[in-house]
């Protein structure tokens, strides 16, 4: 995910231009000089300016490298591993209503633990204990509605 400043700066310029342009299309409030368009347009121009400065490399001298970036994991597809957590969240959002909280959460914890290199016994016991504890805390104690789905909790 490490991109050059040129690319991120360019992306910001594009985003700023898009926001200024679509901001300018917003309908004005009759009888007033400043309406909903003003703020997005100011931000848009600001973003374009910052993006341009970043792209040409101004301000780089202020950046401090982290003391000790932990060693990255190597291996095929290691770059894609970082997308596992958002993918699991997406899975939760899509599956929780039909599968129910307990199975969905168990799958999520199991896959997450395996992805981080847990051994099977640890991953499975985590996947059983974790969701039950979270369900007890949120459903019983805090009364957050959690979807029952296929496997409703016995309490």
């Amino acid at each position: 995910m490490q991109l050059s400043d040129r690319i991120t700066g360019g992306m910001l310029v594009a985003l700023g231009a898009a926001s200024a342009w679509s901001g300018s299309l917003l309908p004005a409030v009759p009888g007033q000089d400043v309406g909903p368009a003003a703020f997005p347009m100011i931000i848009g121009f600001g973003l374009m300016g910052c993006g341009a400065l970043i792209a040409i490399g101004i301000g780089r001298s202020f950046e401090v490298d982290d003391l000790d970036e932990p060693a990255p994991k190597t291996g095929p597809l290691s770059g894609l591993r970082v997308l596992i957590p958002p993918a699991l969240l997406l899975f939760y959002a899509l599956a929780a209503d039909t599968l129910g909280f307990l199975p969905t959460a168990a799958i999520m914890v199991l896959l997450g633990a395996k992805a981080l290199g847990a051994k099977w016994p640890l991953a499975i016991s985590m996947a059983i204990i974790g969701p039950v504890l979270v369900h007890l805390a949120f459903y019983k104690l805090l009364r957050v509605p959690l979807p029952p789905g296929l496997l409703p909790a016995p309490w």
Binding site: V109, A113, L142
Partner: peptide, 30 residues
């Protein structure tokens, strides 16, 4: 870490669902 992080992720999902009461906020978190 492999036992702490999945639980954190689960708490993110449940917590954001609790604040927004819809699955949209869970996706937003992602």
């Amino acid at each position: 870490r492999s036992s702490v992080m999945p639980l954190i992720l689960l708490l993110c999902a449940v917590g954001s669902f609790a604040t927004g009461s819809n699955v949209f906020s869970v996706m937003l978190v992602g």
